[in-house]
């Protein structure tokens, strides 16, 4: 389970509230879509969830573990795909995955099986022995996704994961995320592609100016606001 309680984060000595008293719970088996305009606070929220940014106030719990009190245990339950993955340019894809496998202490057989399967799915097997510096943006994105899934995390958090992926890879990623959720794990991702969010997510949250302004299943949102997701989004964020 992901539990965010009164999560608050300000910049410029409190002048800009990036995230304002955000409370949210995501249950196991759920695919949660996190939406919002540019600069709404999505990435800041996600960075606090994965322990890269410390909240000013509030609490983040990942699989029941408090990120502030026990960050290492909480991080072990997580897989994270950042919006713009900067990776070591001079190590190869397979070395990067081996490094993650080692630090997340994934047993060799599990690691080999997952890397083999996911790399094959994303057509990345042949590129794995090459330096990451030679990868395209999409290939890098796929590599980060494989890395995030390597430890089979209970909570998978992705920030704009579809950006840079070709339609086929995007489709495959969605399949993999569905499979991950079906196994009782959580998938939490931010996106600007509303069609994907509408059809793909079990529940949606819309954030604007740091506040969670809409939350629920597609049906619940339609019942409250009417129209499709694009119309709802435009209405609540105007």
């Amino acid at each position: 389970m992901i539990e965010l309680v009164s999560l608050t984060k300000s910049y410029n000595k409190g002048q800009i509230k990036a995230v304002d008293d955000l409370t949210l719970t995501v249950e196991p088996g759920e695919i949660f879509g996190f939406l919002g305009p540019n600069g709404a606070g999505k990435t800041t929220t996600i960075k606090m969830m994965v322990g890269v940014l410390a909240p000013d106030k509030g609490q983040v719990k990942i699989a029941g573990i408090d990120m502030a009190k026990n960050p290492l245990a909480a991080k072990k339950k997580l897989g994270y795909v950042p919006d713009n993955p900067d990776l070591y340019q001079r190590i190869t894809g397979e070395e990067y995955l081996a490094f993650l496998g080692d630090v997340y202490e994934v047993p060799l057989e599990e690691r080999q099986e997952r890397i083999g399967r996911l790399a094959e799915t994303f057509s990345l097997t042949a590129a794995l022995p090459d330096p990451i510096g030679s990868y395209s943006h999409g290939m890098r994105q796929k590599l980060v996704v494989i890395g995030a899934l390597l430890s089979d995390p209970e909570v998978l958090i992705l920030d704009e994961p579809m950006v840079g992926l070709d339609p086929k890879s995007s489709h495959l990623l969605k399949e993999i995320l569905r499979e991950h959720a079906r196994a009782g794990k959580i998938v939490f991702f931010s996106t600007h592609v509303l069609e994907v969010a509408e059809r793909f997510c079990h529940r949606l949250g819309i954030i604007n100016h740091g506040k969670l302004i809409a939350l629920g299943t597609m049906e619940e949102l339609q019942a409250s606001y009417g129209g499709n997701l694009e119309e709802i989004f435009l209405e609540v964020t105007q």
């Binding site: 894809g93 397979e94 995955l97 081996a98 490094f99 496998g101 080692d102 630090v103 202490e105 047993p107 060799l108 690691r111 080999q112 890397i115 083999g116 790399a119 097997t125 042949a126 590129a127 794995l128 022995p129 090459d130 330096p131 030679s134």
Partner: peptide, 20 residues
Amino acid sequence: VSGGRRKAAARQRVRSVLGA
């Protein structure tokens, strides 16, 4: 990138966390 690509997954081996 250079040619002569090898099979990737077969080259995995386990290191300790400190070793990695």
